[in-house]
Design a binder for these strands. Sequence first.
DNA 1: TGATAAATTCGAAAAAATTTCGGAGCCGGA
DNA 2: TCCGGCTCCGAAATTTTTTCGAATTTATCA
Lengths: 347, 347
Amino acid sequence: MVRRGRSERATLADVARVAGVSPTTASKVLNGRSDVGRSTRERVLSVMAELGYKPTAVRHERARGRALVTMLDFVESRYAGTVLQGILMAATSAQAELVLRLPPGEPISTTRTAARAWVDEQKESGVAGLVALAVAVPDAVLLAAEDLGMPVVTIDPIDTTESRVVSIGSTNWAGGRSATEHVIRLGHRRIAWIGGPPGSAPSAERFHGYQAALDSAGIAQDRALIRNEAFSVEAGLRHGRDVLALGERPTAIVAGNDEIAVGVLAAAKEAGVAVPGELSVTGFDDTPQTEWTTPRLTSVRQPLVGMGRMAVETVLAMADGVQPASRHLQLATTLSVRDSTGPAPSR
Amino acid sequence: MVRRGRSERATLADVARVAGVSPTTASKVLNGRSDVGRSTRERVLSVMAELGYKPTAVRHERARGRALVTMLDFVESRYAGTVLQGILMAATSAQAELVLRLPPGEPISTTRTAARAWVDEQKESGVAGLVALAVAVPDAVLLAAEDLGMPVVTIDPIDTTESRVVSIGSTNWAGGRSATEHVIRLGHRRIAWIGGPPGSAPSAERFHGYQAALDSAGIAQDRALIRNEAFSVEAGLRHGRDVLALGERPTAIVAGNDEIAVGVLAAAKEAGVAVPGELSVTGFDDTPQTEWTTPRLTSVRQPLVGMGRMAVETVLAMADGVQPASRHLQLATTLSVRDSTGPAPSR
DNA sequence: TGATAAATTCGAAAAAATTTCGGAGCCGGA
DNA sequence: TCCGGCTCCGAAATTTTTTCGAATTTATCA
């Protein structure tokens, strides 16, 4: 009366029969009752696994689709929004659920066991992998994830020293270099750098690209023309004023991101310096703002959507057991040349 | 055989008897099956509450945490990003999972049964409610959600005619009115309106606020000064040029959003019209751009984060059975006065 | 407009799962 | 050896869920 062709699903009674116990006992095992002997419990459990028994009542069929957790701090920026768009699109087309999370707080990020419990919980609820967006994923969580076999991919990690984690970024170095080479090709020789916070890895990488371009063009670096403070309009404005007030002022300024560049444009306007006539300015990120600054801003475009997409694809592949070709993937940047850069003024 | 003194707990059968349905139906209500009529469901639910029926075995957890689905089309805008930030924060503090989704596609949005199956699926995977962000939620899905008792809240719904759905917005009308009143107080009398797409509800509401302010100040509307096309810099630029080229040009322009306002500013600069000396301009949305336009843009600030937060709180409350006070909630806007508005030129 | 198909809604019967309660076996002490 | 207390299990009763078919309403088409 049981193995009828129709009923594909194993029932509790089937499990009980195979395990040689009563349905009652099987039910007790399922519900974690205490009045079941250890060996009996184990036998029942193993039969359940074998028959693939699913508590009918517990309709937690995660089998439908995989879930993916994305951790991020702030959505409220175009950067995060755009990457998220890529993540969302990729997740949708891979038929994976996308769960958003703030990074875990205190106890989890520090304690080893708490982290492990957290990851375990994620796993339990069907999460196939983690995508961390521009957050400092704490070591504890990473270790736990690794131990439990949950793939983690970070996008633009704050702290890139951790090489165990798969990370995805754009070629900040190449981007910084291409922006700088662009103005060098336009004849500029006195080129300032105004970057983001000294601790920021992306900012540092972009800066190194700037340095590399200067080096290979045989241009000496001038300390006075190099600033690193913050990714903000205010910082750009302040350092822009500063740099333009120098006795021998630069003819080009390479900014660490678009906001800084906007600040620089404001400083130039203040000082009555014509852009691009007397000064060329480049940004980084190619945010929509670049289209309606005056003049329109030349900027390095990061493949933000592509980064999100790549992160999802990588995580899902890892969940399937495919190791990525490289632990650190970089997508190419491109330079969007607009009106804020021009030939160096002849003097 | 039922009302035994010993068994204090009401059983499903008791509920069914009191509600005048079969135990089968009561069970279906308990499990959110779709084949129960609306009124029957409500009756059973109320009897359950009355008798204090508790599912004997608190069906395998579920207690872990609630999940919330947010549907959105595009994350890649500051608007969506900011609202999402509020949603994420509120969801986190309510210990709810946040699942992101693109709006369901073809078969689901049209077919009745497909929509119902979709909602059912959501429900089974533990989703407590739906938040739809600036999307046109198809009727089919809404109906299905309502039938199955899944709360839905829309934020800035594209199509506000649907009054059954709880929606959250900002006071577009009041915002449009306050911006217009602001310039009226500054002495302007000839005030243009450049808004978004004619079909857009928010745009229309803002426009009506503009009209109301003119009316109560006793200023006649001038057809030539009213434009509605698109929420874009280009549209703002084009109509800005147009309006400024009029014989008797306006001394103030109220724009439907910040992008349009940016376009207007560009048009004014082109035409050599001083802002705010000869022309006052207001935007709508208070995006960060407003801070670094020249001059800095006066704009209506929407409580975007608050809207996200409110949506989550409302949905979760509804999931707990609390009906919202109103089916359409509006959060107040405030006017951020900056440098792009000034006294009307005396002539 | 009428007929035909499809869908909705409900319940009886059957199946599945859980709880109650009692009993077998197993100590250890009297 | 007998007794009380204990653990572990299952039969029966109870509760819940599922299946499936019927009655009714709604949509669709000729």
